[in-house]
């Protein structure tokens, strides 16, 4: 366990080194949030209520989504694991007495922790300064929102780990990563709240893993009854189910992949 704590701390320290990059990330997320919010405000001025969302919910959705970009890494960056598979460094990793899944999970959680503190919080605060947002009014909803944020970050890790693992078969994972980074924002509610899509499309996207990254955490934050089971508990359960499924698949594929590795001697 101590080794994972050390890897976590290293991940945290590594990402906290790039201060200008963090400030740039906050600026970009805030600018995009304001642009998206302005479009949705214009829309909700014409149609005050769409599928249970009003203007304030929509703007809150936009800024929760922008705050989630850092921790869930929905548009990258990919895990360095992919590059290590391509260069062959993975052979050294596999000799270590720590399984790669747990190793990279600890490393990424370090990044997530820094990202939530230094990027998500200021981005959301900037949004709250510019627009009136729908904030939870009881502590239980804040707690479930925090749990949803953690689960979203873990699902985000599991997806990126799976994208990286394809490198064992494809060698170059840039294509898979690019497709993943585009399916993610479109299917998760990042590009547009899923409630705006036609019902059949929205219902399908809601049960896919990407919804666990944005739409479900947003609805938990807003306390919507459109979540599975009619409340935050159902949303969190769906996230946890996807997390278990994806991590299970990841650990299965890691074993398969490590049997494929051939180390050239000499």
């Amino acid at each position: 366990m101590r080794v994972y704590c050390a890897v976590f701390a290293l991940g945290l320290r590594r990402y906290s080194t790039y201060r200008a990059a963090t400030a740039a990330g906050i600026l970009t997320n805030t600018v995009f949030g304001i642009i998206n919010a302005a479009v949705l405000l214009a829309l909700f001025e014409v149609r005050p209520e769409i599928n249970g969302y009003d203007a304030r919910d929509a703007v809150t959705h936009v800024f929760v989504a922008q705050a989630l970009i850092g921790p869930v890494s929905i548009m990258g960056p990919p895990l360095e694991l992919a590059e290590r598979i391509r260069t062959g460094d993975i052979a050294v990793d596999l000799m270590r007495p720590a399984p790669p899944l747990a190793w990279w999970l600890s490393h990424d959680l370090g990044r997530v922790a820094f990202s939530i503190a230094a990027r998500s919080t200021p981005t959301f605060a900037a949004g709250a300064l510019v627009f009136p947002l729908a904030l939870p009014d009881d502590p239980v909803r804040w707690a479930s929102a925090a749990a949803a944020l953690l689960l979203a970050s873990l699902v985000g890790f599991a997806l990126r780990y799976l994208y990286a693992l394809t490198g064992f078969w494809l060698l170059d994972t840039r294509g898979v990563t690019a497709v993943g980074n585009l399916i993610g924002p479109a299917c998760s509610g990042m590009l547009l709240p899923l409630v705006l899509f036609p019902d059949a499309v929205a219902e399908t996207l809601r049960v896919l893993p990407w919804a666990a990254l944005v739409q479900i955490p947003v609805e938990v934050f807003l306390g919507k009854d459109s979540l599975p089971g009619g409340g935050p508990a159902g949303g969190l359960a769906l996230q946890a189910a996807w997390l278990a499924a994806l991590l299970g698949l990841a650990s299965l594929l890691t074993v398969r992949a490590s049997r494929k590795v051939v180390v050239q001697g000499g």
């Binding site: 790039y18 200008a20 400030a23 740039a24 970009t28 995009f32």
Partner: peptide
């Protein structure tokens, strides 16, 4: 600011959006 690559994104990709 060498590592401020993403700041430019707010006017490049942000401008596009």
């Amino acid at each position: 600011a060498t590592d401020a690559r993403e700041a430019a994104n707010s006017i490049t990709y942000g401008g596009q959006a």
